[in-house]
């Protein structure tokens, strides 16, 4: 069996329909929503604020604390048990490491910036949607960042290199599959997250990463447009 066409006639280098909105959570200092098809992520940023217990404080810079959480009813499979799991803890950590390179937290010693990522609906690629939403929320919170971060998963399904795998592709049984979440700083093309699950050849991998970078540039456009949409009214700031 050969993998020929994708669901909904998607091209192999085409991501699922994207949607982004900024300022969705009123009480947060910054918030954003991002969606890849049926994978929805809400991110809320609180802070910089006081950090306790005190031994966690860093006197040289502020710290970033990320929390990734899939809601119990979010996935197509079994109910996700509420609370943290080994998986969510790992994803929280890689999210933090994907976002830190763009942030400048020197201005906030001894304080913390909390990022909460909630996923009400997931169908593969949730950490990428989470990172993309969190980058927008951090910008909305007015933090100093040298760039945004956009993320997408790429990979291989049988003999095809594809962008933004959905659940049916991630669990494809007709051939080998590789799933590679990639986060990129769109200006410089530098990679801040690269994980892999599956089997892929070096040539296929470099082709996949190239496609991820190209897709992240498109995602960054969506992010920028969403951020500007919220503040558009301020554009003709008459004085």
């Amino acid at each position: 069996m050969v993998y020929k066409t994708r669901l909904e006639n998607r091209g192999f280098d085409q991501a699922r329909p994207m949607e982004a909105k900024v300022g969705v959570i009123k009480r947060a200092d910054g918030s954003a929503f991002f969606r890849f098809g049926h994978t929805w992520a809400y991110a809320a940023v609180y802070g910089p604020r006081n950090l306790y217990p005190k031994f966690l404080q860093d006197p040289s810079k502020g710290i970033l604390r990320c929390n990734y959480n899939m809601m119990p009813f979010s996935s197509v499979g079994e109910r996700v048990r509420p609370g943290g799991s080994r998986r969510s803890k790992e994803i929280s950590m890689v999210t933090q490491k994907a976002l830190l390179p763009v942030l400048d937290l020197d201005e906030f010693p001894n304080s913390v910036i909390d990022v909460f990522i909630e996923l009400p609906e997931t169908e593969a690629g949730s950490r990428c949607a989470g990172i993309t939403a969190a980058a927008m929320a951090l910008a909305d919170a007015g933090l100093r960042m040298k760039d945004l971060v956009a993320a997408v998963s790429v990979g291989r399904v049988d003999d095809k290199i594809v962008v933004d795998l959905d659940y049916s592709e991630e669990s494809y049984e007709g051939g080998p599959v590789a799933d590679i979440p990639v986060a990129v700083m769109p200006n410089s093309g530098k990679i801040t997250l690269l994980q892999m699950d599956g089997i892929i050849s070096p040539e296929q991998l470099s082709k996949a990463i190239g496609m991820a970078k190209a897709t992240c540039v498109k995602i960054a456009e969506v992010q920028r447009a969403a951020l500007k949409e919220k503040y558009k009214a301020s554009e003709n700031n008459g004085q």
Binding site: A139, R144, M145, M185, Q223, R224, S234
Partner: peptide
């Protein structure tokens, strides 16, 4: 006075 986002 245009709105700009980080990294623009």
């Amino acid at each position: 006075k245009a709105v700009v986002v980080p990294g623009e």
